[in-house]
Structure formats: structure tokens, C-alpha cells
């Protein structure tokens, strides 16, 4: 008779250990320090991990910021337009977390503005986590699946490449 109750209890205990939705609000839980301008990124190659790569809340925040800071204006929901598409697999300036961070922070030639100092480094890490989801390279358990505005494309949870 006690088995279902014990099973429920065990399930609840397991859920309490789930980190997927852990919300880091304050800057006391910062992302890794900015690895430095582009010239130096070679020295930190492959070392900087995005702290938010597996955090659904942070990826979702990245999606909100993608809209707020008008990334859509050039990247058009990842499809590309004036800016490069973000839905494809080959990225000119690299697709490692540190490359994405550097692209947003320092900008890139021919149009991508530098957002360093205009948005916080923590927000850049959230954006960097989200842009991987556009391409479908964030686990479906982590990727956002709803839009605050009109839905232009398949939800990130159902894109290819995961």
C-alpha cells in the first residue's frame, strides 16, 4: 500500500534536484568574465563554456532580449536579411560560445554593431545561449517553445539539429 506514496515522494525529491529552471537574478551569480577582445580569444579557445547553455529560464530571457534589442531588425528571427542568418550550421566567425559572445560584445565587420557596454555581459551570455536555439542546437527540454509576439517559425523546441 505504501509503494505509490513512496514513489510520489521519490519523484518530488528528484524534481527538487532539477536545475533546468534555476533563476539567477542577481549579478552575484555572474557568467564567466568576458574573455577579452577578439585578438585574445585564441588563448581561451574551447575553454569558456556558456553558463546558461542548459538553463531554460536564461535561454528564454535570451529570446526576450533578442526581441528587445532588435536583433530581429537585421537577423529577422534567425532567417537573415540585412544581417547573416542564424538558422544555418556554418557560422563565419565561429559558433563556440566564446565566438558568439565576442561577436555580440565586439561586433563584426560589415554591420554587426558592438553591444559591449550597451548591454551587460550577463545579458550577452543569455543572448549567446539563445541564438544556439534558433539553429536548433539547444536541447528541446531547454529551448523556449512560445513567442510573446506572432509566431514566425517552428518553435525552437522542434527545430532540426538537436
Amino acid at each position: 500500500m505504501r509503494c505509490p506514496e513512496l514513489a510520489c515522494l521519490a519523484l518530488i525529491v528528484c524534481l527538487a534536484g532539477c536545475e533546468r529552471e534555476t533563476r539567477h537574478f542577481t549579478a552575484d551569480v555572474p557568467g564567466p568574465a568576458y574573455p577579452g577582445p577578439r585578438a585574445q580569444t585564441g588563448t581561451v579557445a574551447g575553454r569558456a563554456e556558456n553558463p546558461y547553455a542548459r538553463n531554460a529560464y536564461a535561454v528564454n530571457e535570451g529570446k526576450r532580449l533578442f526581441r528587445w534589442y532588435n536583433c530581429n531588425g537585421c537577423h529577422a528571427e534567425g532567417g537573415g536579411g540585412m544581417g547573416v542568418p542564424l538558422m544555418d550550421a556554418e557560422w563565419r566567425y565561429g559558433d563556440r560560445p566564446v565566438d558568439v559572445f565576442t561577436s555580440i560584445h565586439d561586433g563584426r565587420p560589415d554591420g554587426m554593431p558592438a553591444f559591449g557596454g550597451r548591454v551587460t555581459d550577463d545579458q550577452i551570455w543569455r543572448l549567446a545561449a539563445y541564438v544556439r536555439a534558433i539553429e536548433g542546437r539547444v536541447a528541446s527540454a531547454t529551448a523556449p517553445n512560445r513567442d510573446d509576439s506572432l509566431q514566425e517559425a517552428k518553435p525552437e523546441t522542434r527545430r532540426a539539429g538537436q
Binding site: 537574478f25 542577481t26 549579478a27 526576450r64 551587460t120 550577463d122
Partner: peptide, 12 residues
Amino acid sequence: NALKPGVYMPDQ
């Protein structure tokens, strides 16, 4: 975020 946790204004 220390005064209103979760608010969209970031700590700096």
C-alpha cells in the same frame, strides 16, 4: 534584483 527579484532591469 536585490529589491525586486526577477525584474528585467539587470544588476550592474
